[in-house]
Amino acid sequence: NQASVVANQLIPINVALTLVMMRSEVVTPVGIPAEDIPRLVSMQVNRAVPLGTTLMPDMVKGYA
C-alpha cells in the first residue's frame, strides 16, 4: 500500500509547510503520495489541517 502525507501537527492556513509538519502513513482514502513531501515544503494549505489529517491535493495551494 502506498503511504500518504499526513499532518504531524495542526497546520495553520497561510503558513509555509516544513518537513516537521508532515509524516508518511498508509491511510484510507489515499492522499498526496509520501514521495511528494519534498515538493510540498514551502507550499501552503488553503484551510487549517488538524493533526492526523491526510493531506489531499485540493488542500495545498499550487499542488494540483
Rank of each mutant, 00 (worst) to 15 (best):
A3R: 14
P57M: 06
M43S: 07
D58N: 12
A64T: 14
L51M: 15
R47T: 13
M22W: 03
A34Y: 07
A3L: 11
T54P: 06
V27L: 04
A34L: 03
V5P: 01
A34D: 07
R47I: 10
N14F: 06
T54V: 08
R23S: 09
M22V: 07
V26Q: 08
T28S: 13
I11L: 09
M56P: 02
N46P: 02
K61P: 08
I11A: 01
V6W: 02
T18S: 10
R23E: 04
P29Y: 03
S24K: 10
P29F: 04
P50A: 15
K61I: 15
T28Y: 14
M21P: 00
V30D: 08
M59T: 05
I13A: 11
V26L: 08
M22E: 01
M56G: 04
P50L: 07
L10K: 14
M22G: 01
I32H: 01
V5Y: 02
V20R: 15
P50Y: 08
T28R: 10
L19A: 12
Q9S: 12
I11G: 01
L17D: 00
V45G: 00
V41D: 02
L51R: 13
V15T: 15
G31Q: 03
Q9N: 07
M59D: 14
I13C: 08
M43W: 06
I13V: 12
L51T: 14
M21A: 05
M43P: 00
A48W: 15
L55F: 12
V5S: 03
M43H: 11
N8R: 11
V15A: 13
T28M: 13
I13N: 12
D36S: 10
A48C: 07
S4I: 02
P12I: 03
D36P: 00
V30E: 10
V49R: 02
M56R: 11
L19D: 07
Q2A: 09
D36Y: 12
V49K: 01
D36R: 07
I13E: 15
N8D: 09
L55E: 01
T28Q: 12
P38A: 13
S24P: 11
L17T: 00
V41Q: 06
V45S: 08
L40A: 00
T54S: 04
I11V: 09
T18L: 07
G62V: 04
Q9T: 13
V30F: 13
G52H: 08
R39V: 10
A7T: 08
V30A: 13
T54A: 05
G62D: 14
L17E: 00
G52D: 09
R23D: 06
N46M: 09
L51V: 12
T28C: 08
P38W: 10
P29G: 03
A3G: 10
R39L: 11
V5L: 03
V5H: 02
V45L: 10
T54R: 03
A34M: 07
G62Q: 09
S24D: 07
G52F: 04
E25A: 15
T18Q: 14
V6Q: 03
Q9R: 14
A48P: 14
M21F: 04
A16K: 11
V26T: 11
N8I: 05
P29R: 04
M56Q: 11
P33D: 06
A3C: 06
V41T: 06
I37S: 04
P29D: 05
S4Y: 03
V6R: 03
N1R: 10
Q9I: 09
S24Q: 12
V20F: 15
V26M: 14
P33A: 07
M56K: 10
D58A: 10
I37E: 01
I11D: 00
M22D: 01
T18N: 07
V30T: 14
K61M: 15
D58S: 13
A64D: 15
S42A: 12
A48K: 09
I32S: 00
V26N: 13
S4L: 01
V27D: 01
P57S: 08
P29W: 03
V20N: 15
R23L: 05
I32D: 01
E25L: 08
Q9M: 13
G31N: 00
V49H: 02
T54D: 01
M43Q: 11
N1K: 13
T54M: 03
V60E: 01
P33S: 06
A48L: 12
T28F: 14
V27A: 06
S42T: 12
V41E: 06
P50S: 10
N14Y: 08
V41A: 05
A64P: 15
K61W: 12
G62I: 04
N8V: 08
A16R: 11
A7Q: 01
P12Q: 08
V60Y: 01
V60N: 01
P12Y: 04
E25P: 01
Q44G: 05
P29K: 05
M59K: 00
T54W: 03
V30P: 15
R47C: 07
P50K: 10
R39G: 09
A3Y: 10
L19P: 14
V41G: 01
L55G: 02
R23H: 05
V27M: 08
V26A: 09
R23M: 05
V45W: 03
T28E: 11
A3H: 11
Y63I: 04
A16C: 07
V27T: 11
D58L: 06
P50Q: 09
L10P: 13
V60A: 01
L19G: 08
L19K: 11
P57G: 07
L55Q: 01
T18C: 05
V26F: 15
A48T: 14
N8Q: 10
M56Y: 12
P12W: 04
M56L: 09
A7G: 02
L55R: 00
V60P: 01
N1H: 15
V27E: 02
G31W: 02
M59H: 07
P57I: 05
L51D: 10
S4W: 02
I37F: 03
T53I: 09
L40Q: 00
G31E: 01
E35M: 12
R39W: 07
E25C: 05
P50I: 05
Q2E: 15
V20M: 12
P38Q: 11
P50E: 12
T18G: 07
P12C: 05
V15L: 06
M21S: 04
V5F: 02
S42R: 08
T53H: 14
P12V: 04
P57C: 05
P50F: 06
G52A: 06
A48N: 10
A64K: 05
V60W: 02
I11Q: 01
P33Y: 08
A34C: 05
V49D: 02
P29I: 05
S24T: 15
I11C: 03
I37V: 07
M21D: 04
V15F: 09
V15N: 10
I32E: 01
P33K: 08
S42Q: 11
N14T: 06
P57Q: 09
M56A: 07
I13S: 14
L19W: 10
N46Y: 09
A64E: 15
N1S: 14
Q9W: 05
E25D: 13
M22I: 09
